[in-house]
């Protein structure tokens, strides 16, 4: 019997998996991110379909219910994603700065040559 929580998780997982596939199909994400995200969505969906799979794992980690395991695991993943986004934004910012500075200098040189 699937719990209401399970239904929400399955629905969310399926929507996100479909969205991820669409992004991969349109070549907006690479193969490795596609595989990683697909694994994450499958893991999420399976917590809704087979909650008993996580019972043993949750109890061995001292957690009362699979939902605690899922929540804790999800928060950990979210922290990792936020960190990755933070790094990416920093990298993009540095690249934009370099491009804008280079453009400014090149434009000035062109003006001087004319």
């Amino acid at each position: 019997m699937i719990e209401p929580y399970g239904l929400i998780v399955i629905l969310l997982g399926l929507i996100m998996a479909a969205y991820t596939f669409k992004e991969f199909y349109r070549k907006r994400i690479g193969t490795i991110p596609f595989i990683i995200w697909t694994i994450i969505w499958i893991a999420l969906i399976s917590t809704g379909v087979y909650p008993q799979l996580y019972l043993g794992l949750a109890s061995s980690l001292g957690m009362a219910a699979p939902i605690q395991f899922v929540t804790t695991f999800s928060i950990m993943i979210l922290f990792a994603i936020v960190y990755q986004i933070f790094r990416t934004v920093g990298d993009i910012n540095r690249k934009i700065t370099k491009i804008v500075q280079q453009l400014a200098l090149e434009k000035t040189e062109v003006k001087m040559d004319q």
Binding site: I96, T97, V100, Q101, T108
Partner: peptide, 25 residues
């Protein structure tokens, strides 16, 4: 003045960095 223009605002640190390179040039 010789004007070097950033197409978007980057901040005073970046502006100075551009200016120092322009001065060297």
């Amino acid at each position: 003045a010789k004007v070097v223009s950033h197409i978007i605002r980057l901040g005073v640190g970046a502006a100075l960095s551009t200016g120092l390179r322009a001065a060297s040039n």
